[in-house]
Design a protein around this nucleic acid. Structure first.
Length: 525
RNA sequence: GGCCUCAUCGUCUAACGGUUAGGACACCAGAUUCUCAAUCUGGUAAUCGGAGUUCGAUUCUCCGUGAGGUCACCA
């Protein structure tokens, strides 16, 4: 069975857009193959632990509709939250050697799998693939400083006799377990061939690889060690991870080989770049999924856009034919293939995300959109005084109909909808297009008011042509441009030079409200 | 600096070694229009440079250049 995973370290509940992309690729690949997508928590660095991370993460996955099939249980999450940091978690007792791996089958938090790592570390230590290194940090620094340039690090302790190691350990000396790269070179050769799921064939020169720490002095594994044990034992078939892991891949491949496990190749998804260069970073604008959701980007749009950063479905089009850009998520899943993930770094283009969002906004029926909008308000704008009006509005559909083609996102829509509920205050008449009509402002407004007064109480009986003819007449009488008269009316009703179509908006506002606003505009503002 | 990876319009990308190098976003122009949008039509715009292989190279090889990544008891 195909199994993929997302394996964040619990340093906060935010999901970076780049991590969303690797998660998405993993999710899509698993689903396409009727496999499983797993959430594993890599909390081996307890100093950086941020409480609440996992719940937050799961919530975002849920909002997006890409829930993992397997993830840590509530109890395990609680246990992790209460994990007491210990400077010494070494067990290293004989019973570990016969420990049944299956006990840990449903453990997806690394600090709850410590015995497992130590079990395999013991084995590798016995076989000489790992060695104990007792260097203090000062000594270590000294050794590294004395190293000729570009020489890989090798600890002098790698030649220590097992007996001496034992006595020092039993004496309580602190130590780490390092990978014995020289032994690896001896056994596997200096060139390590590797075939990446995304990048394809490549070769590493082991003579440049450091004797990396695999188990830290506190007994907790480093990423390099834990990721190999976990991916293998959890049956991960296609671990897709960030590009930054590529240089450390040989260390992990060596571990597979030392353990005599079949190497499971990684897929390295490239980093998303900022338009101004460099990695996409929060200093340059929104980069977290929740920020986009808060701004009212629809999950469908976000998923479509992000998955297309470095990937396109393989569909053949005839020359010149318009290619499809909009795919619903199930379609994307069925078309997905790891093999055609791009090897280059995509640049994050906000304008295109806006375009996608507008497309998805337009595709929604007014009813669907009302539901989505209300849900968004409950989640992100609940305390806004405007929200109550919208949530209670039985005629929201008609308003959204007017707004959905002129909004980038739900936040934008929220700002634009307010005039339906709230009268304009402090109208700014100084806009350029009003320069020629300002002298007759009051008279024109009163005439427009009179025009609306001549209409039926029931706005459904209003006719667009009647209104428009009336408006143009008024403009002619006062010898102003038709457009200027419309603008005057717009500002009076909406309080802004930008609005949905006037007549349709007036119909929604109702006769009483329209005439009252026109009156206010003529005399009060 | 060492090591690794990558390279098609400004951006996302398409193109069995043979195409007038295609599409989308953005941009520009026109149409429509009571504002803003939306819509429709059209347009500008790319194979990083240099060698080589080949009848033929965006595609294969090498060298440059550029970009990104990485060099922790962090992940």
């Amino acid at each position: 069975m195909v199994r993929t995973r997302i394996a964040p370290s619990p340093t906060g509940p935010q999901i970076h857009i780049g991590n969303l992309r690797t998660a998405l690729f993993s999710y899509m690949w698993a689903k396409k193959n009727n496999g499983e997508f797993i959430l594993r928590i890599e909390d081996t660095d307890r100093k950086r632990y941020v409480p609440g991370t996992v719940e937050g993460l799961l919530k975002v996955f849920e909002d997006l509709g890409i829930m993992p099939d397997r993830y840590p249980s509530k109890e395990d999450i609680d246990e992790m939250e209460n994990f007491k940091f210990s400077d010494d978690t070494w067990i290293f007792e004989d019973y570990l050697d016969t420990l049944d791996d299956k006990i840990f089958e449903n453990k997806f938090i690394q600090t709850q799998r410590l015995k497992l790592y130590q079990k395999y570390a013991r084995r590798l230590l016995r076989e000489g693939w790992l060695y104990a290194c007792f260097l203090s940090s000062e000594e270590l620094e000294k050794v590294k400083r004395s190293l000729p340039k570009h020489q890989p690090f090798r600890s002098p302790h790698r030649f220590m006799s097992p007996k001496e190691v034992d006595t020092r350990i039993s004496r309580g000396d602190r130590f780490v377990l390092r990978l014995n790269v020289e032994k690896c070179i001896k056994e596997f050769g200096v060139n390590l061939d590797y075939e990446d799921l995304v990048l394809g064939k490549m070769s590493f020169d082991l003579s440049t690889v450091d004797d990396q720490v695999m188990i830290k002095s506190n007994g907790i594994p480093t990423y390099h060690f834990a990721v190999v044990i976990d991916d293998y034992l959890m049956g991960i078939t296609h671990p897709i991870r960030g590009y930054s892991w590529l240089p450390s891949t040989p260390k992990q491949v060596l571990l597979y080989k030392a353990l005599k496990w079949e190497v499971i190749p990684f897929g390295h998804a490239t980093d998303i770049l900022d338009p101004s260069g460099g990695k996409l970073s929060k200093r340059k604008g929104a980069v977290y999924v929740s920020e986009f959701l808060k701004q009212g980007y629809l999950p469908d749009a976000l998923l479509n856009f992000v998955s297309f950063l470095g990937w396109k479905p393989k569909i053949t089009y005839s020359r010149g034919e318009k290619e499809r850009e909009i795919f619903d998520f199930q379609e994307l899943v069925s078309l997905f293939n790891i093999e055609n993930i791009s090897k280059t770094n995509p640049v994050f283009d906000r304008a295109k995300l806006v375009w996608y969002n507008k497309q998805y906004l337009k595709m929604k029926s007014n009813q669907e959109l009302s539901e989505i909008f209300r849900e968004w308000i409950r989640k992100w704008r609940f305390d806004d005084p405007l929200s109550k009006f919208i949530l209670d509005d039985h005629k929201l559909d008609a308003k959204l109909e007017l707004l959905k083609e002129r909004s980038d996102n739900l936040l934008n829509m929220f700002e634009q909808i307010s005039f339906f509920y709230l009268k304009p205050n402090n109208i700014d008449w100084s806009i350029k297009q009003l320069a020629d009509v300002l002298s007759n402002k009051r008279l024109i407004l009163l005439n427009i008011k009179k025009l609306f007064e001549s209409f039926d109480e029931d706005t459904s009986k209003w006719r667009h042509e009647d209104w428009e003819r009336g408006m143009r007449n008024i403009a002619d009488v006062y010898k102003v441009k038709h457009g200027d008269a419309f603008m005057l009316c717009r500002v009076a009703l909406v309080g802004s030079p930008i609005s949905p179509p006037l007549f349709e908006s007036a119909v929604i506002l109702g006769k009483k409200e329209v005439t009252s606003r026109l009156y206010d505009a003529a005399f009060r503002h």
